[in-house]
């Protein structure tokens, strides 16, 4: 793993590059980042992260830990994670917010390389996003998928056949003001909800990665004030 740092007006951007191109059995990756008091740190990735077919009994493990101190803002804006047939990925993102800290988090997932007709018939994916504010649970998402994931996603209340999904979380006092404009951007396969005046959550489903981006980009443009990192546009 490598990271390139770029100084932008008012913030630091870190572009993470997985030199192996992705994760496979037994790999263990970890990113730890802290935005200190009053700082604005944005993390993104150079390209989509790939979870390759597992090569052994051990899952690929990704453990990312973020911290935002008082008055800081942290943006976690990785590009898509693409799950390959036969993958075994165990991933966890933990974000600790001090009182007065703000965050924008996105996690887009693509279930198989649908453009080449790949379906996840035997794969494993465990994912957990845990956001705490002042040590107390603020947002928690957990999913465990194993086996015929394509059949699972075909279920009506699961994904109704969608092949891509994204979660977006904004913890910021401005969250409430974004709700109505963002709802206006969403198709019927996506929703936004204001969990608290300063906590906006979104769940987006789409046919494939391309369709997901078409919905996600305007949302992220709005939530980043049109400053989405250039790597997202390539």
């Amino acid at each position: 793993m490598r990271a390139l740092f770029a100084r932008r007006p008012g913030r630091v951007e870190a572009i993470v590059l997985n030199t192996a191109g992705g994760a496979t059995g037994g790999d263990a990756f970890s990113i730890a980042a802290e935005a200190r008091e009053g700082a604005h740190l944005r993390l993104t990735t150079q390209a989509a992260e790939r979870a390759y077919r597992a090569t052994g009994p051990a899952p690929a493990r990704i453990r990312n830990r973020l911290v935002a101190r008082h008055g800081a803002r942290i943006d976690w804006l990785p590009q898509e994670t693409i799950l390959y047939e036969g993958c075994d990925l165990d991933r966890r993102l933990t974000l600790d917010l001090d009182p007065g800290a703000r965050a924008l988090v996105v996690e887009p997932i693509i279930f198989g390389r649908t453009a080449m007709g790949e379906r996840l018939r035997a794969a494993r994916f465990r994912d957990r996003i845990e956001i705490r504010r002042d040590g107390a649970p603020l947002y928690l998402d957990a999913l465990r998928l194993e086996g015929d994931i394509a059949a699972h996603l075909a279920r009506p209340a699961v994904a109704n056949g969608a092949g891509a999904m994204a979660s977006v979380i904004l913890a910021d006092p401005s969250a409430e003001a974004h709700l109505a404009p963002i709802r206006a951007l969403l198709p019927a396969s996506a929703g936004a909800s204001l969990m608290a005046p300063d906590l906006l959550v979104l769940r987006l489903l789409a046919r494939d990665g391309h369709a997901l981006r078409a919905t996600l980009l305007p949302v992220l443009d709005r939530l980043t004030g049109d400053t989405l990192p250039a790597s997202w546009r390539l």
Binding site: L140, D141, A142, L143, R144, L145, H152, P156, A157, V158, A159, N160, A162, M165, R183, A188, S189, A190, G191, A192, S193, L202, R203, L205
Partner: peptide, 19 residues
């Protein structure tokens, strides 16, 4: 530790119900 929520479209309908 066993929590797992994958009724994504169920979540979307709950969000869409708000409006």
């Amino acid at each position: 530790d066993d929590l797992s929520s994958t009724s994504f479209l169920g979540d979307v309908t709950a969000m869409r119900h708000e409006t």
